[in-house]
């Protein structure tokens, strides 16, 4: 103020914090940017469900609007991806040894794993990428990772259409009755993805550099989860792996999800209750932990 000299408009003395609070309370004002209760947060989120679908749809359409073939790419991309993996792993490296109906095995693994991969890459960056939106609109911030995963789920549906056609063709023009459980399996996998996206998006918001590690984690997980080889057969080949190593490799979230989806579409696989129980366990665990962890940070997002 000194370089301005005298001040004909002296600032009103600031209210003390207690006086401000008293004034706010007397007139029923709500404190802004504070974390609501967990239940209130969940309820508020539920009231935004219409918007979440609109945004997820918008993101999906946006991703496919900019080129000549448009939505056709949502079918072409998985087909081409499946073909290139088949070329490398099925024909060149021969990881298909001992696996019947390898094309179905490979594509079901590939497409299911994509759901995971997107949750960890795009989902974890949901808060950073949508800063513009956070700075113009008010909504429960947990919507951002949710919308990203929902959009990925919707975007992946055509791929599962492709999978069904391939499985039908490769397995001698027949599908097992368990295929009716495929939607349930996909919902369980998506729930895991939701939890992971909530968890990692808060981590990445706090420590941005972690975003650079996510692609690495995704790749590592892709190679150990049996996308293009059978974890079960591989363990038999090693023979004397310790029990805990075998259990970890078989029941870690990504591997068990792949097994679950394969049990629904492959005639050679049978439904195993353990697979499903473990999957549901992971899904519930990730969702609850992810939601609570994200909620704990609400009221701090958007400043970075």
């Amino acid at each position: 103020m000194t370089e301005l000299g005298p001040d004909p408009l002296r600032l009103p003395d600031a209210l003390s914090d207690a006086a401000a609070e008293a004034l706010a309370r007397r007139h029923g004002l709500q404190q802004a940017s504070v974390r609501p209760g967990l239940v209130g947060y969940a309820r508020e989120l539920w009231s935004y469900r219409g918007l979440m679908w609109a945004l997820a749809r918008g993101e999906f359409v946006t991703a496919h609007r900019d080129n000549y073939l448009g939505l056709l790419w949502s079918v072409l991309t998985p087909l081409l991806l499946g073909a290139s993996y088949y070329l490398v792993f099925g024909l060149l490296l021969g990881t298909s040894r001992g696996i019947e109906h390898f094309i179905t095995f490979l594509t079901s693994g590939l497409f299911t794993y994509s759901l995971f991969a997107v949750s960890l890459t795009s989902g974890s960056k949901a808060l950073l990428n949508k800063r513009g939106m956070m700075r113009s609109l008010q909504f429960p911030r947990v919507m951002l990772p949710i919308v990203t995963v929902l959009a990925a789920f919707v975007g992946q549906l055509p791929a599962f259409g492709v999978l069904l056609v391939l499985a039908f063709w490769e397995q001698g023009w027949t599908l097992p009755w368990t295929v009716l459980l495929l939607p349930v399996a996909l919902l369980i996998v998506t729930t895991m993805g939701l939890g992971l996206a909530m968890l990692t998006s808060r981590l990445v918001h706090a420590v941005r550099d972690l975003a650079n590690l996510m692609p690495l984690v995704v790749r590592l997980l892709r190679y150990v989860s049996g996308v293009f080889f059978s974890v079960e057969l591989q363990l038999e080949r090693i023979g004397d792996a310790p029990a805990w190593v075998a259990a970890t490799l078989t029941y870690q979230p990504a591997a068990v999800s792949l097994t679950m989806v394969r049990e629904t579409v492959m005639t050679t696989e049978e439904l195993d209750p353990t697979t499903w129980l473990v999957s549901v366990g992971w899904a519930v665990l990730f969702l609850v932990v992810g939601f609570v962890v994200f909620w704990r940070g609400e009221g701090s997002y958007g400043r970075a």
């Binding site: 709500q30 802004a32 940017s33 513009g132 113009s136």
Partner: peptide, 27 residues
């Protein structure tokens, strides 16, 4: 911050009702 979009680092803010930002940058 008044619109409830960028949380303050310290200090407190109370609002009487819903605030909405009308900006040319609204995304």
């Amino acid at each position: 911050t008044i619109a409830g979009l960028v949380p303050p680092t310290s200090g407190r803010l109370w609002l009487g009702g819903r605030a909405s930002l009308l900006g040319v940058n609204a995304v």
